[in-house]
Amino acid sequence: MIELIDVALLCMMAVSALAVLWLRNLFAVAMLAGSYSLMAATLYVVLDAVDVAFTEAAVGAGISTVLMLGALTLVPHEEKPSGRHALSGLVVTVGLGALLIYATLDMPSFGDAGAPVHRHVANRYIEDSAAEVGLPNVVTSVLASYRGYDTLGETTVIFTAAIGVLAVLGWGGRPGRRRPPADGETRP
């Protein structure tokens, strides 16, 4: 049953991704991207990656949709027909996909106890992190202490991205189109 749910969700994700490519109405594309994220989040829950699903729903379906709508206020509704087909892009994408699938052939099978991820540092995290870091949650210890610099870098990236988005969208109204607020109108 779980496999059937996986296949059905993946098919629907493929349909919505293709529709994003084909449709010219940008609002519809933003909506379909949101539904794609929601189905991806469901797939992650089915695959038991609940925390990833959480992030996908909050960022992919929530924030991204709002940001895309914010960008839509700055552009026309319809995508301009480009006229030419980017054949080289298709070749590069298909080639990269084939390479990635080829790379998965070397990976250990799902749930393999002898996989490097289970034999490398995970045991030390599980056994010693309570004594070394002093936190009951192993994931928090790994993210905040063992991989602290990595987390710092990620936070820097996200902070920079947020600044870039704010610079592009100009939150709080566009300059030049600002008017005095009317009665009953609230500023965010």
Partner: peptide, 17 residues
């Protein structure tokens, strides 16, 4: 929250004011 943002966008053509 997403639906509120979308409906606000459709009504006002803007997410802020």
């Amino acid at each position: 929250i997403g639906t509120v943002a979308v409906t606000k966008f459709v009504k006002h053509r803007h997410l802020g004011h």
